Computed example of a mutant assay.
Amino acid sequence: MSVLITGGLGHVGSWVAYLLAKQGKQVVICDTAANRFDSLGLDYLEEVRDLLTLESVDILDYHNIFEIFLRHRDELEGVIHGVSVIAGPYFQEHPFKHLSINTMGTLNVYETCRILGINKVVNMSSGAVYGDAPGPQHEDTPYKATDLYGASKISGELYGLQYSDTFGMDIRNARLFFVYGPGKRPSHMHKVYQGLFGPLEGLTDIQAPNGSEQSMDWTHVLDTATGIVKLFEKPQVTNRNFNISSGVPVDHLRIVDEVADITGKNSNVQLGPGPFVVRGAPLDISRAREELGFEPRFTNIRDGLLDYWQWLQNANRLQ
């Protein structure tokens, strides 16, 4: 049997693919970057390359999605849907395009799975569905959209809940939060991410417009991926929504200080006033602990930063 992952070459999706392949599973990766795999620098996927099937697909191209899912249907135990435009200042710059990817792309996956009889789906959702509700935010915390990204994630969840109820599908939502770690270069991210983690890559003089007055439970990507895999592999669940994060809020300025201490130099990072995005923290991960056996490894931010630094150093040497 195999697992199909949409967005399987993204930051989180690539680690989900890695963990599943390390278990010996065949993994079908659907991603617009599939034809550029060798240039992405995802060194960890090279280790399991023989177990990966790469399919280039645009999540808004329903016909192509249907053909690919149909081709692999008989071997699939389920789908993990990870295609998403992440929250950030650029989301509002092209709202229709980004909302379409996050909402219609998700609906394309659900509808294809419904028609083809692929009942098991894990949807990578977000803690953004809670908006600015104060933490700790439990899965029963009411929906509250405080930006377009959050609205797109709420709609994706609601589609999934209704498809499950109406058609007897098993669609589960993994509510992820702020992710960092190997597989993503800070230089390819927004300014606040660069300010927090960029010096680990060697970036200096980062001036971010905001983010200094925020404390979030940043989660190492390997912990995020582990939680998703556990949710996918659980035979039966009593709930459909699961928070997957570190569950430990960390002040942004502390991250800047920890990074400076790890690298041994002051990289002249400046975060402007106010929050990066309007969110509460932390996510309450007790449900994932109790029902899935999820236990994040990098709850100490310094441990996660050291791991990230090591990967970036290796990646820089391989350039």
Rank of each mutant, 00 (worst) to 15 (best):
F298M: 01
A288G: 11
D307V: 08
A128F: 15
W311N: 06
A145K: 10
P199Q: 06
M124I: 08
I285Y: 09
P296D: 02
F177V: 03
N108F: 06
G105M: 03
Y90K: 11
K191C: 02
V48P: 13
L76D: 02
S84N: 11
P296T: 12
E46C: 12
R49W: 13
Y90H: 09
V27K: 09
C30D: 03
R36N: 15
S286Y: 08
L161G: 08
E67Y: 15
D165G: 12
G41R: 12
Y149G: 04
E201F: 07
S14M: 02
L19V: 00
Y180R: 10
G105K: 11
A21K: 09
Y159Q: 05
V79G: 04
V57P: 01
I5N: 06
I115F: 12
I154M: 07
N64D: 04
L161A: 08
D31N: 15
G8V: 02
G181E: 08
I68H: 09
P209M: 03
V179Y: 05
P275S: 10
L60N: 05
S100Y: 13
L148E: 07
L54P: 13
L283Q: 05
G272F: 09
L176Q: 01
Y90T: 07
E75H: 15
R289Y: 15
L70V: 01
T106P: 00
T238N: 14
V85S: 07
N123M: 11
D307N: 13
L148W: 11
F232K: 02
S39W: 09
R317D: 06
N64K: 13
T238E: 14
D43R: 14
S245T: 03
E46V: 09
V79L: 08
F96Y: 12
E139S: 11
D132N: 15
G227C: 05
N314A: 13
H63M: 08
T204I: 02
A281T: 06
V250L: 04
N102D: 08
G202F: 06
E46D: 15
P134S: 13
D217W: 03
I285P: 00
E111G: 05
K265R: 14
L20T: 04
M124C: 08
D38F: 07
F177M: 00
H220D: 00
Q137N: 14
V278T: 08
R317T: 13
G7M: 04
H138E: 04
K22I: 04
E258W: 13
T299R: 13
H188I: 03
A145D: 04
Y308L: 05
N119M: 11
Q92G: 10
R317S: 13
H190M: 12
E111V: 02
F298G: 00
I101S: 10
H81F: 11
A315P: 10
G135R: 12
L70T: 03
G117V: 01
F69M: 01
F69L: 00
P249R: 11
S212Y: 09
S286C: 14
V121M: 08
